[in-house]
Design a protein around this nucleic acid. Sequence first.
DNA 1: TATAAACCTTGTAGTAGCTACAAGGTCAAG
DNA 2: CTTGACCTTGTAGCTACTACAAGGTTTATA
Lengths: 136, 136
Amino acid sequence: MNIGELARAADTKAETIRYYERIGLLPAPPRTPGNYRDYSAEHVSRLAFTRRARDLGFSIDQIRTLLDLADQKEQSCKAVDAIAREHLTEVKRKLADLGALRRELESLIGQCRHGTIAECRILEALAPDAASSARA
Amino acid sequence: MNIGELARAADTKAETIRYYERIGLLPAPPRTPGNYRDYSAEHVSRLAFTRRARDLGFSIDQIRTLLDLADQKEQSCKAVDAIAREHLTEVKRKLADLGALRRELESLIGQCRHGTIAECRILEALAPDAASSARA
DNA sequence: TATAAACCTTGTAGTAGCTACAAGGTCAAG
DNA sequence: CTTGACCTTGTAGCTACTACAAGGTTTATA
């Protein structure tokens, strides 16, 4: 299976696959006589795992660790759980930040009086102490 | 006022200020005889505006436009309002995405049975069709 | 058999928004 | 007059790709 076929199988781009190989996330496959990469089913599942984890927002480094862990069948899954929880915490933090941001933006927009730039409340609100740039 | 003072005044790093100058976001100030940048109050408020807008998640390009608009006092503030609304829409989209992500992660973590890697539900759930990498 | 289209190869540079150096110049204090 | 804290430029690094250029391979068709 060549790189284009793998790309279609795992819903990725060929360039991304080469990138993953370069950074050591996906093992380099054997080559055909014509120097094409020749992938197996193992590559497909490893790449599919990676893509799914990326969709869920795990970083490349976290995925690298997860893939390493996945190969140690006898170990406890504590470390896996820890990575997932760590990521969840991060997602919750971002949610809180974005929620606050949303409220701020809505308040900003709510102040618009549809007048001229000179009396624009949005620009005023953006200039914290509003010394000059929006009023000078 | 030199770059360090401006940095403290606008809660930024000197390197960031130089970067903003390089990309044309902050106008290049005059220089002292010793070739130090020499900033005025106008620079402080422009930078403060920029930082505030960055904190609210506006892109550098959006800020560039906002700063341009802020100088056209007679124009209507429609364009300003449009940029803010566009950004709010984007923030809402991200909130929805992150919310969905959070639910997925919570469900993932809720499945953990604290056993071995071989029976790890998190890893299983991450491998979409779970062909081999997590089970082979 | 020729040739063109559709693939593949490598390497490099670009994206956003900074941040972190290195190697050197300037300035204020003691 | 030296020490240390500043400043200068230029370049490379960060994340996770994406896009291209210049060339080689394979496959289909005329």
